[in-house]
Write a protein that binds this DNA or RNA. Sequence first.
DNA 1: ATTCCTGCAAACAGTTTGCACTACG
DNA 2: CGTAGTGCAAACTGTTTGCAGGAAT
Lengths: 163, 163
Amino acid sequence: MNTSTRSKQEVDRWCDDFESLCRARGIRVTPQRLAVYRVLAEDRSHPKPESVYRRVRERVPGLSQATVYRILEFLEREKLIKRVSADDGVGHFDANLASHQHLVCRVCGRMIDVSVPALTNARVPSVTGFAAEELDIRIVGRCRQCARLKAGRRKPLEPSDPD
Amino acid sequence: MNTSTRSKQEVDRWCDDFESLCRARGIRVTPQRLAVYRVLAEDRSHPKPESVYRRVRERVPGLSQATVYRILEFLEREKLIKRVSADDGVGHFDANLASHQHLVCRVCGRMIDVSVPALTNARVPSVTGFAAEELDIRIVGRCRQCARLKAGRRKPLEPSDPD
DNA sequence: ATTCCTGCAAACAGTTTGCACTACG
DNA sequence: CGTAGTGCAAACTGTTTGCAGGAAT
């Protein structure tokens, strides 16, 4: 099983839920929004806007980059997707709203979903003077491929979306 | 006490350590590097390159932005400072290498150091096929100021470096 | 003296915006 | 039909790079 995609049936279900949730909330459902959401639902690799754009465009030819940015920002504001924190300075998005953590390779930047029970169940600490809502946990290290390489090479693999 | 600065004596000590560590490692010590490091040591607010530039420039007049970027990247590579993950798409840096967490306000973006024992002591989980090295934990919520404001206002306060 | 660092300015990459047009509900 | 969404292109912000001169060891 390819770890960076989801099964078609799961994706279909997510998209159906997405569509009904939008309608219920009075959010307009456009082909562009549906397509952006679907690409995110299919892709576990936390793609960047540019990569979302490339893939959505194959299905919605006229699509413009600006629209992708606007949709991603909008869906994030509506809490229908999440923006995941990364230190490469570019946005990464995730349709998986369930509590989980990310393995982050410090060499290639790849980000892989995991769910470590001890962390998923960790209580959000109470801190005075701060309304803590959730924990965002990244496990930083080296992925299998990068761990093999001897130090020295700078960028053995391209970041998150190699395609 | 101002939570976003460190005492002069502590800063001096950090800078001394920094300088001797550089000499020991054969890293050239330039006024620019020293000044960038000092600004980071003084500032607990995880400043962006632009804000580091502004402050360092007051002390090193000729300084160019490119140099700040180069120094930040260099110091990070040498593990003398850390780049902290943020989702505003711009780099944020931290001279505090001790294990700690960040409170991140989802409204204004402010990032505050905390050390929650339960999290600081959390064991780095072992994940097959991944050489896990450290945990990067962000506690996301609303800071005191932003928690007070009723929903509606978009950006009550400016992100991390208001000055 | 040699090697590495810095300043400058231009190039770049990612993201945002104004405006006219289109389409969802 | 009205409002909100989209496409296009230009503007912007943050960051990187090439090169010539300068400084640290």
